[in-house]
Design a protein around this nucleic acid. Structure first.
Lengths: 191, 191
DNA sequence: ATTAAAAGTAACAGAAGTGTTACTTTTGGG
DNA sequence: CCCAAAAGTAACACTTCTGTTACTTTTAAT
């Protein structure tokens, strides 16, 4: 009964992601997105009332996808295996932190849908910390993680590590193994 | 011969910094800045042709200030002392990385002044790496830094460390000493 | 007191984003 | 075949930011 859509939800979210990373929250506009999708700006308003609603919808989609992968950390029994899994997961989702930061800039207006989305996002954020907290706790139980360091610092540290710009084009294998080495035992020699 | 200015260069740059951190590059406008300074928008155009020129001017000012402090790293002889100095310097300039990232978003238009400023900024950036490279080299010479880890990763790591959000309000002293501990010897126990 | 330089303002026109409305196009079930 | 639902468009009114111009205000040197 209906006409065929010119773009899929997936294409829309991919374009949204690309624009957000490139232009930032304030620089993101419906015009740019519409151009990317070869569609008129008005068409987008058929699906989203405004920028906030679109972006929070996208964030939920992205966060859902990430959490499904993160959840699998529990399928690894030892701390060491979970560590490896977490690191490679984060390294293949480098954009997530940037997007989370952009998400913080979203102002909740009067729009009800946006408020709901923000609440759902907070819930997912807590879910994320839940999985990671278990990971940290396991590490301390197995006495692999230093007991006197605050949990939140461990997590922050691991997340930040992957955001280091590889500006001089070090080969990925050297880069990743170096990062793991530093996270495990630091950059100082044992003297 | 001239009327007294309603704002000093310092006030202007402070307001610019605050707005940039709060609103980001795209969200920054002359209107917001003028309001902050209790001055008309037009007045700002007496000093800067456009947003790019103002922001690059500000970046130069900020970078200059930072480099003067960084330069003093050379007054410390041992690697260990330089490490302590660098860490506390970076920890008291947490905004610098955010600002550097915002700086990357600046599009060079046709404006000649902006082109010059971007060149000067690149030069200062190289100067910064020069000082830090000496620091790394010293660390490797003193055999305090692991020799098989790429230099650029050491630097990226130290800079990223201070960007970790202290979301759960760990006390500054515990926070700082924990960060230093992790940078030095990692988060794993020695087993 | 005059005056010229520097500082500041108010207002205009143009560009770009937003949200809405009235319209056209496509499509498959009856 | 037709027609209603969903998709899409073009255009309008509104807002905000930009850069400029013509103007007023302050100030200190003469």
């Amino acid at each position: 009964m209906a006409r065929e859509r010119k773009f899929s939800t997936d294409e829309l979210f991919q374009a949204t992601k690309q624009l957000l990373l490139l232009q930032g929250y304030e620089g993101f506009t419906f015009s740019l997105l519409a151009d990317d999708l070869n569609v008129s700006r008005g068409a987008l308003y058929k699906y989203f009332d405004n920028k906030e609603e679109l972006i929070t919808d996208y964030m939920l989609y992205e966060m859902d996808r990430f959490l499904i992968e993160l959840k699998q950390i529990e399928s690894h029994r030892s701390f060491e295996a979970q560590f490896d899994y977490l690191l490679s997961l984060i390294l293949s989702n480098t954009d997530i932190q940037k997007l989370i930061n952009i998400g913080k800039q979203i102002q909740v207006g009067s729009n009800q849908k946006v408020k709901e989305n923000k609440h759902k996002l907070e819930k997912l954020h807590i879910d994320m910390y839940h999985y990671l907290q278990n990971f940290i706790t396991l590490g301390k139980e197995e006495q692999r993680l230093k007991s006197h360091i605050p949990d939140s610092l461990f997590l922050g540290y691991i997340f930040q590590s992957v955001a280091i710009p590889n500006h001089f084009g070090i080969s990925p294998s050297v880069w990743v193994s170096s990062i793991k080495e530093i996270i495990r035992h630091g950059m100082f020699t044992n003297t």
